[in-house]
Design a protein around this nucleic acid. Structure first.
Lengths: 113, 113
DNA sequence: TTAACAATTGAACAACTATTCATGTGTTAG
DNA sequence: CTAACACATGAATAGTTGTTCAATTGTTAA
């Protein structure tokens, strides 16, 4: 699929891909939204449960969910009165989980230069 | 009811870690800044070269570089008149490259390159 | 039907941010 | 020394955005 030899080169991303990537990052660049995404990684969660679990108003959660849905990061599934949100697809959930795992290792421990 | 899946669950991040992660995402959530980071992944690049290569004003690039430096994503090295920027450490460059690679696979429908 | 519940939506506002322009700082060449 | 170069910085501004509140839509139970 890819070039046989790969170095630590700059990822050859097209301008469109770069913009798309930046969009994805921006969506998770907000703490509330990131927490919402993380809460949805395990499996489908209802809006009310997300709000209660994170201590946010249902309205705010819904606003954020709309953005995350528009960004193809989460998908919605209605079931009765409730609407469940989960990762849009397996790729997304894997990418996000991976980013979190890697950055979790990298996070600084209050080191002051 | 939900069918339990055996999936990589969400990494249990502390609130502080979550905020830090969101901060890192926010830094790369801007297209200009993301391109600057990508341009620095290969190795040390001078500010002027970044600006010329990306078609941005040196002033703007410098402003962004300050944020990226404050966010421990890039580090600066002075050499004569020029200042070279590169990934703050190996971890960062690996994390970023990995995210880019993954999202590169995930990206959908094509745009004009 | 009515009533309660779950979620969405719109408006309005404060806070933040990306960009530009002008100026300032440090460095090397002449 | 001065002048030119490379970058940084401060202010000012236009655009964006996260949050709250009130009202609305959709769904189920009584």
């Amino acid at each position: 699929m890819n070039a046989p030899h790969e170095e630590t080169n700059t990822a050859p991303l097209s301008p469109g891909q770069t913009a798309e990537l930046a969009d994805m990052f921006r969506l998770m660049g907000d703490a509330s939204r990131l927490r919402i995404v993380l809460a949805c990684l395990d499996g489908p969660v209802a809006v009310g449960d997300i709000a209660a679990r994170l201590g946010l108003s249902p309205s705010l959660v819904s606003h954020h969910l709309r953005l995350l849905r528009a960004g193809r990061i989460l998908k919605a599934t209605r079931e009765g009165k409730q609407v469940f949100y989960a990762a849009a697809d397996a790729h997304i959930s894997r990418v996000v989980a991976d980013m979190v795992a890697h950055v979790g290792e990298t996070l600084r421990d209050g080191e002051i230069p």
